[in-house]
Design a protein around this nucleic acid. Sequence first.
DNA 1: CCGTATCCGTTTGGATACTG
DNA 2: CAGTATCCAAACGGATACGG
Lengths: 100, 100
Amino acid sequence: MAVIAGAWAPNVIWHLRAGPRRFNELRLDIPPISAKVLSQRLRELEGRGVIRRTIQPTTPPSVEYSLTPLGTELLPALDAIVEVGHKLKARNRMDDHPQG
Amino acid sequence: MAVIAGAWAPNVIWHLRAGPRRFNELRLDIPPISAKVLSQRLRELEGRGVIRRTIQPTTPPSVEYSLTPLGTELLPALDAIVEVGHKLKARNRMDDHPQG
DNA sequence: CCGTATCCGTTTGGATACTG
DNA sequence: CAGTATCCAAACGGATACGG
């Protein structure tokens, strides 16, 4: 499970699902994340082979992060967990307010 | 993701996949887990609706933990994550030892 | 724009001892 | 057997300041 460990790691993976994103784009995608933590997570996920870091030779240069093929395999799993979470929340609301 | 948060939570879920287990059985299933943490995780997972706690009126009485239907839905997701982890480990070994 | 370094409060989990 | 209470060290993440 270490592969998705750390605060915001699943969010980072999730926001890369549609294609490459830059550092500051990810910061805006995941509002309350700090630069420090985003940087840490990106480096960890890169070290584990979940994401790839690419420096684009544009003017000005920019850095892009994207999922590796293996990283992409995590998406359905994260989806499934989130969906169970939603069902659980709905059920717990019903327990508290039986008319819901 | 809070649904699987906390140390050993995925292991607890995993070891309930084949049916109910008792407290001390889970302790032995997950060797380095402490009673305190196992107790905490069981209580959290129960509170979230992932597992169910049942007191068996046997002699002596025993306590059994089992997955709820929603908890069972987490198994394929955990499987998928673990499998990606295995592939990642294999790939990283190859990177370090190109003949592997 | 893309980060890193430092400080610092909070949370976590382990060890141990104890209870019904 | 099935936990709970307490103490403690380590890890974590946030805020801030700073560098390439």
